[in-house]
């Protein structure tokens, strides 16, 4: 554990709390892509299969349980509690276009050709692109609530902070995880446009609006 990874994980936790807080206070899931949230459930469930056979640490265990359960809870809120506030006609990105190629890539580029390892690799690739339906939805509506942008910023910063963590681990432990690193850089790259608008507009007190 190092400071970058810890801060990254805390940003990830924060993003989830911001999202749940937004839904409860506004009693709405408007502006949130159900598809992206469903992809995160798939990401966590396929990545943390090792909960059944591998013990890393109490921290690792608790975080994994939290990510799986909170992502399921978010789907429950969207599907049942606040269902009328979700507009499926805005959430039209085809997730097959993400899951299919990610699975094919996981079959080709992995560390070990067995079930759990391919699932882990698939989850890493899928996480990198899971934000697409959300970004696509914002592109369509051209705007986002401020609280939603705080959620996305925390979510983007989480993976961005893993990059200095990998650099740090390379120098201190000599460990390199090329699959996580390449996917993590792609994942962070997808947020650059968003980060630009977030830091130059939202944090200056303006509304998140995209040029028409």
């Amino acid at each position: 554990m190092n400071i970058f990874r810890l801060l990254g994980d805390l940003a990830h936790l924060a993003s989830i709390f911001i999202l749940v807080h937004k839904m409860h206070t506004t009693r709405s899931c408007r502006g949130i892509s159900f598809k992206t949230q469903a992809l995160y459930v798939v990401v966590f469930v396929t990545r943390y299969i090792d909960l059944f056979y591998s013990w890393i640490s109490l921290y690792n265990f608790v975080m994994k349980i939290f990510f799986i359960s909170s992502s399921c809870y978010i789907l429950y809120l969207m599907k049942y509690r606040f269902r009328p506030t979700h507009d499926p006609t805005l959430d039209t990105f085809k997730v097959e276009y993400l899951a299919g190629p990610c699975f094919a890539l996981a079959l080709i580029f992995n560390y070990h050709f067995d079930f759990t390892e391919i699932m882990w690799t698939f989850s890493i690739y899928l996480e990198a692109v899971a934000i697409f339906p959300q970004l696509f939805m914002m592109q369509r509506t051209g705007e986002a609530e401020t609280i939603t942008t705080h959620y996305l910023a925390a979510l983007g910063i989480y993976r961005a902070l893993y990059i200095p963590n990998w650099i740090y681990r390379y120098y201190t432990e000599g460990t390199v995880d090329p699959i996580a690193i390449v996917a993590g850089i792609v994942q962070t790259g997808l947020y650059l446009d968003f980060f630009y608008v977030y830091f130059t507009k939202v944090l200056q007190g303006q509304k998140f609006e995209l040029p028409a």
């Binding site: 990545r47 890393i56 759990t116 390892e117 882990w120 893993y162 963590n165 995880d177």
Partner: peptide, 10 residues
């Protein structure tokens, strides 16, 4: 290289 790869990150 045998067995499972250990992934200690989240």
């Amino acid at each position: 290289e045998q067995g499972n790869v250990v992934h200690d990150e989240l």
